[in-house]
């Protein structure tokens, strides 16, 4: 596939080489951003497709890895019954919401996950010399289509658990909207935590271990009801390492496991605030970027 260069009118002769000054763009800056995003994203997909076996292999492995976790947890719950008041279908829905949030993050923010490479190799230089925000270019150049398995797993589990919960009356009417909102909050929190962790890389360069601590471990832990953890750890997962705030907190109220209606409001306030704070950290970190020697 080739990129099509958009038709525009030239107004003045070129002062330099090749291109010339042009009329005011027909599309707004947002429209241009969408187009550039699409071009960069499709280039990244075409790049990945060059290594077909690796692409298919990694997609397959991630699908299998996720599926075996589901089967294991399912088998345990089947054998031992409800945990702290959460039935197997309740847990499946929480798992599904958490995985869909993570899946959306992995799909659109895959490069944050592998940001260490940009710091270690100095590849971040190439983002800074382009006339676009670095975060925009970074995300657009690495769409995680091979990570689609996470989103697919979440959707599959939700498709299994949803009708059962509806049949027992555990979810009804507006609850579906709140569940979708929980997916969005969850994805936003993944983005905020992933972005903040990556931004720390501007100072410490190597962030792989930090990612395990802020992303990987909390991601696994918060895919299940936080009631199984001691209260101090529960608080950690909704404040300092807040991935539980987007999924567990609203679902606890939706599925009638406790909490109040305010549990639907907190994520709506906290998630955008977390993203805002993470963007601030990113901006500050960018000025501290030290590049690498040649």
């Amino acid at each position: 596939m080739r990129v099509r260069v958009r038709e525009r009118r030239a107004t003045s002769p070129s002062a330099g080489v090749g291109a010339s000054e042009t009329t005011a763009p027909v599309l707004t800056r947002l429209g241009r951003a969408a187009r550039v995003y699409w071009i960069l994203a499709s280039a990244s997909l075409r790049g990945k497709m060059q290594y077909r076996l690796d692409f298919l292999g990694s997609t397959l492995i991630q699908t299998i890895m996720g599926a075996d976790t589901i089967l294991f947890i399912g088998a345990v719950l089947w054998r031992f019954g409800p945990v702290m008041g959460w039935s197997i279908t309740d847990i499946a829905m929480l798992y599904a919401v958490s995985r869909m949030g993570m899946g959306i993050y992995m799909l659109f923010c895959n490069e944050l996950d592998r940001f260490e490479i940009y710091m270690v190799n100095g590849d971040f230089d190439t983002l800074l010399i382009r006339p676009w925000p670095t975060l925009f270019t970074l995300l657009a150049r690495g769409v995680g289509i091979d990570r689609l398995a996470f989103l697919a797993q979440g959707m599959a589990v939700a498709a299994l658990a949803g009708p059962r919960l509806a049949a027992t009356g555990a979810i009804r009417g507006w609850d579906i909207v709140w569940l979708l909102a929980a997916v969005a909050w969850s994805a936003l929190l993944y983005f905020a935590v992933g972005l903040a962790t990556a931004a720390v890389g501007f100072w410490i360069v190597r962030i792989e271990e930090l990612q395990v601590f802020t992303m990987n471990a909390p991601s696994t832990a918060t895919a299940y009801p936080l009631d199984i953890y001691p209260s101090w750890l529960r608080r950690v997962f909704v404040t300092l390492l807040p991935l539980g705030l987007g999924s567990y907190v609203p679902l606890r109220f939706i599925l009638d496991k406790g909490g109040t209606a305010l549990d639907l409001l907190w994520p709506a306030l906290a998630c955008p605030a977390a993203v805002w704070a993470a963007l601030g950290l990113w901006k500050t970190g960018e000025a501290h970027y030290a590049s690498t020697g040649t």
């Binding site: 990129v3 260069v5 958009r6 038709e7 525009r8 009118r9 030239a10 070129s14 090749g18 291109a19 010339s20 042009t22 763009p25 241009r32 187009r35 550039v36 071009i39 960069l40 280039a43 382009r130 006339p131 676009w132």
Partner: peptide, 12 residues
């Protein structure tokens, strides 16, 4: 890709 990023028109 770069032509798109820098908003270079098709004539240029």
């Amino acid at each position: 890709i770069l032509a798109a990023m820098y908003d270079v028109g098709p004539i240029d």
